[in-house]
């Protein structure tokens, strides 16, 4: 009888797709039960979405004003209070889960498997290290609770279930610390598609040359309904904000179509896109390493290619 608890990621209104990807990972463990835990000040929206995911047994909510924003120091003791009795406690390998889950693991006195990319058995997992240059297979000893983050790009978002499961409010007697306080969240995205869920991503590297060059990529992305991403080199150079960064130290994504404009193809970047459906690389250097992994390569001036694409797709 094995039981999985998944910590839902949400923005107070809707459930993040990362949660459904965690469910897909959990299903590979062939458990007897998958519960989703939603913590928030109003859990109703995310909880009803979670209740509709295929494979979910039950949705539990902890509703409290203290949970209005996802502060790990506040959420972790509540999760640790609910976690006993579960064999697995999973969260997504997004900034939400990366911040939160080690705190949960430490409270539960166990370790954490970071970035599960595949499940080889009920206690055997694979995860990338060294920016994806090496894959580690590991085993969690019997009797030890598994706390893990799920590399969301490695698992599908799953399908809706036949009928929604029950949602139950849960009470805990966890002590909530007051030493950590939310001040504000500044989002830059506006109405652009989200980088982590977009079907198409248009990405730029140092070859784009500056913020003005990125304006041309934004324009093409707008035409394609695509999100915009960037290499670490472009972020380091200050062309775009860090939330656009794709790679080892940024976001790991799996769009159907990925355009890499002026990106040389450092391994740190490639690790963030290796699960993309089709990778298109445009670079003026025909020897750029990006061409070794691209499905379609075009050697040439990226701005010329971008403007022709806009014209011919228009």
């Amino acid at each position: 009888m094995s039981k999985v608890l998944i910590i839902a990621e949400h923005n107070g209104v809707t459930l993040n797709q990362s949660t459904a990807r965690c469910v897909s990972c959990a299903l590979e463990l062939a458990p007897d039960c998958i519960d989703i835990l939603v913590l928030g000040s109003d859990c109703s929206g995310p909880a009803s979405e979670a209740a509709g995911l295929k494979g979910v047994t039950r949705v539990r909510t902890i509703t409290s004003e203290a949970n209005a924003h996802p502060l790990s120091a506040v959420l972790a003791p509540q999760i640790a209070a609910v976690a006993p009795g579960y064999d697995y406690v999973l969260g997504p390998s997004t900034t939400f889960g990366k911040d939160l889950m080690p705190r949960v693991a430490a409270l539960l006195g166990t370790g954490q498997v970071s970035d599960i990319m595949s499940v080889d058995g009920p206690r055997r997992f694979r995860r990338p290290v060294y920016a994806g240059n090496v894959i580690v297979s590991l085993e969690v000893p019997e009797g030890r609770q598994v706390v893990a983050t799920v590399r969301t790009a490695s698992f599908p978002a799953g399908a809706p279930g036949d009928s929604p499961v029950a949602v139950e409010e849960t009470a805990t007697d966890a002590t909530i610390p007051t030493h950590t306080r939310f001040r504000e969240l500044r989002t830059a995205g506006g109405d652009r598609p989200d980088l982590q869920t977009a079907r198409i991503v248009v990405s730029g590297g140092r070859g784009v040359g500056g913020a003005e060059g990125f304006e041309k990529l934004y324009s093409l992305a707008g035409q394609l309904g695509a999100a915009v991403g960037a290499s670490r080199a472009a972020v380091d150079a200050g062309y775009v904000p860090n939330e656009l960064q794709v790679g080892q130290t940024g976001k790991i994504i799996a769009p159907e179509l990925y355009f890499a404009f002026g990106i040389s193809g450092a391994i740190q970047h490639l690790t963030g896109i290796k699960d993309a459906g089709t990778i298109v690389a445009v670079n003026k250097d025909p020897e750029a390493p990006i061409f070794e992994v691209a499905d379609i390569g075009l050697s040439g001036d990226l701005f010329e290619v971008v403007s022709q694409l806009e014209e011919k797709l228009g």
Binding site: N11, R183, T187, A188, N242, E243
Partner: peptide, 11 residues
Amino acid sequence: EVDAGLEVIEV
């Protein structure tokens, strides 16, 4: 630096 943008907290 969070996925949604920039979050400011006080500790």
